[in-house]
Nucleic acid binder design. Structure first.
Lengths: 104, 104
DNA sequence: CATTTATATAAAGATATGGTTATCTAGTGC
DNA sequence: GCACTAGATAACCATATCTTTATATAAATG
């Protein structure tokens, strides 16, 4: 029952994702960068993995976690109409200001 | 502690928002359309209001709830780099396919 | 093979969340 | 003012979630 919506609802998990935007990281690096406990990091990483937002591969003794942006597809897709609405209102505001410029 | 991320994490609340994309609705209409109980709808609406995703105004005996797309600004903003990454990989795939076309 | 290092999992407790039922508040019309 | 309707809130319960501590697995190293 883990999906992208729930996954990104948690600030700690957003921090992890934000970190992974900079490239793959090991659990240890994630722990160091975020300050969370190792078990907690592992748990959040598991949830991110189940939500298909990250994937991991062994690298020697470590485990590298990498971003999987396509996992956000559903979220991005759901958001699209709202984004358009919002953009629409911005555009309308812009046009309004342009009109004001013209007439003033 | 109610923000847009948490607010949209709940399917019931996404249903409400999706409904409001079609224009303002009264609580009764929301209850009818979503099938949830009236108190439950009111609770979710309160959370959406606290997250600044909707606003309400009295309309006679009713209360109309209206979408506030700018409430999603933070979420959309956070998502932007991921969206670019994802778009980037799609573009890369496209280029790859184009290259394949050329060489095959 | 024993030890060390890196990560995952389990167990347990505290808090948060979502749903229901019952009740309260506020408009509306007689 | 009284009944009726729409909606909000309260109380309560069940479940889920996050965090920590303790432990297990697995790779590397001597």
């Amino acid at each position: 029952m883990t999906n992208a919506f729930n996954a990104v609802a948690e600030p700690a998990r957003r921090s992890i994702l934000d970190l992974l935007v900079g490239g793959p990281r090991s659990v240890g690096e994630i722990v160091a960068a975020t300050g969370m406990s190792q078990p907690n990091a592992s748990r959040h990483l598991r949830i991110l993995r189940e939500a298909a937002l990250v994937e991991s591969r062994p690298e020697g003794q470590r485990r590298l976690y990498e971003l999987r942006p396509q996992g956000l597809a559903e979220l991005i897709g759901w958001l699209a109409p709202y984004q358009r609405l919002w953009q629409g209102s911005l555009d309308a505001l812009e046009r309004h200001l342009d009109d004001s410029d013209e007439t003033e």
